[in-house]
Amino acid sequence: MDVTTARTRLEGMLAELDRSIGVLRGDPVAVRDRSTADAGSDLTDADRAQAMLTVATTQRRAVIEALKRVEEGVYGLCVDCRRQVPEGRLEARPDAARCVQCQGKRERRR
């Protein structure tokens, strides 16, 4: 993927993530008289929203880091081994920082 296309896709991803994060951080729903079951449902919804916010925030950081790599002229190089990240991987995940092999190693360590 060329740098111009990567920058455009990453900036689009960042804008979409910012919109999603804004929605997830929205004003809390006004408290009103509700049944206990509804309160439990609200807690589940809040937990789900918090999990989605965590994922979106993590992905936002990855996109910002990818944009930094574009600016530094190292976009598309694995941050661990410095080999070229496969084109297909960058097409699927423009924010990918590692080649498949290094990403696999990182995930196995977790």
Rank of each mutant, 00 (worst) to 15 (best):
A66T: 04
V85S: 05
G22M: 11
Q59E: 11
R69G: 08
Q84L: 14
D95S: 12
P28E: 12
G88S: 09
D80R: 11
R7L: 01
R48N: 08
T58D: 04
T36Y: 09
L17Q: 08
A15F: 01
V31L: 12
A97Y: 01
G40R: 14
D27H: 10
A92R: 06
A39N: 09
C78L: 11
R69Q: 15
Y75V: 02
L43H: 14
S41F: 12
L10Q: 02
R7Y: 07
S20W: 07
A92N: 01
G12N: 15
A37L: 14
L53M: 10
G26Y: 03
C81M: 02
P94N: 03
G12Y: 08
L10S: 02
A66Y: 05
G76M: 04
R93P: 02
R9W: 10
T58I: 03
R93Y: 13
T57V: 11
A96F: 04
I64T: 13
G26S: 15
T44H: 14
Q59V: 11
L77F: 10
R89D: 05
C78W: 05
L77S: 02
A56S: 10
R34C: 00
R7M: 06
P94T: 04
L17S: 05
Q59R: 15
T44F: 14
I21M: 03
T57I: 00
E72S: 08
E71G: 11
V63E: 06
R19G: 00
S20V: 01
G22A: 08
E87P: 02
R61K: 10
G12F: 12
D27R: 10
A62G: 13
P94S: 05
L24Y: 05
V29C: 05
Q101G: 02
D47Y: 13
T36Q: 14
L67T: 03
R32V: 10
M52Y: 06
R48C: 05
G12A: 10
